[in-house]
């Protein structure tokens, strides 16, 4: 991936910046420039909105076959997380044993390496999710 394509999304990748529709208040992740509910009346009224990073597991899967870039992490867990703001986000779950994961488990965003462009390329950092300590 070219450097700029990743760099452009840093606010969303590091701090979960999405959008809030200034017309209906609905929240989206990642950024959208048009609210699918309000369409025309939302244009120019979409505001940057930072998610809290807290949420719960909506669904998940333990991934055993993955692209070579993720081989060292296998098996790893991918999940759809329902954020407290209602919007959902896809990310990996870390620091948790697979058998302890369940739908509804509380998680929060952490920052990890999500990939790189080879040993001499740039490193991509972005959010993953970890269980909230009891």
């Amino acid at each position: 991936m070219p450097v700029a394509r990743f760099w452009r999304d840093i606010p969303s990748r590091y701090n979960l910046y999405g959008s809030r529709c200034g017309s209906c208040g609905k929240i989206y992740f990642p950024t959208r420039h048009i609210c699918p509910e309000c369409r025309r009346s939302s244009i120019g009224r979409m505001e940057s909105y930072r998610l809290s990073g807290k949420g719960k597991v909506y669904s998940y899967s333990v991934v055993h076959e993955a692209p070579p870039q993720l081989a060292v992490l296998k098996p790893y867990v991918v999940a759809i997380v329902e954020m407290d703001e209602g919007v959902r986000v896809t990310g990996q779950l870390v620091d948790v044993d697979a058998e302890k994961i369940d739908i509804g488990m509380r998680v929060e965003a952490v920052l990890r390496k999500i990939g790189d462009e080879g040993p001499s390329g740039v490193i991509h950092y972005g959010f993953k999710f970890a269980p909230v300590p009891d």
């Binding site: 060292v72 992490l73 870390v94 620091d95 952490v110 920052l111 990890r112 390496k113 999500i114 490193i123 950092y125 993953k128």
Partner: peptide, 9 residues
Amino acid sequence: PSPDEDVVT
């Protein structure tokens, strides 16, 4: 550290 951790994370 986990493979997805480094000094930055």
